[in-house]
């Protein structure tokens, strides 16, 4: 049986990753899901969160995705991200700031306030922080 599969991560404005991976973990709308070679065809929505790729040599790579779709085909995985960035580029300070802003916005709602927008901002910021923490764990060993 094949020990690896092809994975493409692309966002509307850029192609982020394309190559062979051994497994990947992504944040699906019903919870985190791990994909290994030989997975059944699957189509799922992604929520903001990290996508962790394990390369052929056991090396790991982490990307941040702010939502999108994941398709599994035999021998191939397609991630259609709304926006995807390499986790190294996620700036923890800005993510933390965005999270706080969203939290204060939810706390003091005024008349013109859009709850759903703030909630999605909060979810995104929290997911970015989660990505950074994962990355730090990986680098810290």
């Amino acid at each position: 049986m094949a020990t690896s599969f092809h994975c493409d991560i692309a966002s509307a404005e850029n192609s982020i990753f394309s190559g062979e991976v051994e497994s990947l973990v992504a944040a699906g709308s019903l919870g985190d899901l791990g994909i290994y070679p030989g997975h059944a065809p699957l189509l799922t929505a992604l929520i903001p969160g990290p996508v962790r790729l394990v390369m052929a040599g056991g090396e790991e790579d982490i990307y941040y995705v702010s939502g999108g779709f994941l398709e599994v085909q035999p021998g191939k995985v397609n991630i259609l991200a709304d926006t995807a960035i390499r986790a190294d580029d996620v700036d923890e300070a800005t993510a933390e700031k965005a999270r706080q802003e969203a939290e204060t916005a939810i706390a003091n709602q005024d008349a013109e306030f859009e709850y759903s927008r703030a909630a999605s901002q909060l979810a995104e910021a929290a997911a970015q922080i989660r990505t950074i923490q994962q990355l730090r764990k990986k680098l810290g060993g």
Partner: peptide, 10 residues
């Protein structure tokens, strides 16, 4: 496909 959550929404 397996759909997650359900096919329509997705």
């Amino acid at each position: 496909y397996l759909y997650e959550p359900d096919a329509k929404e997705l």
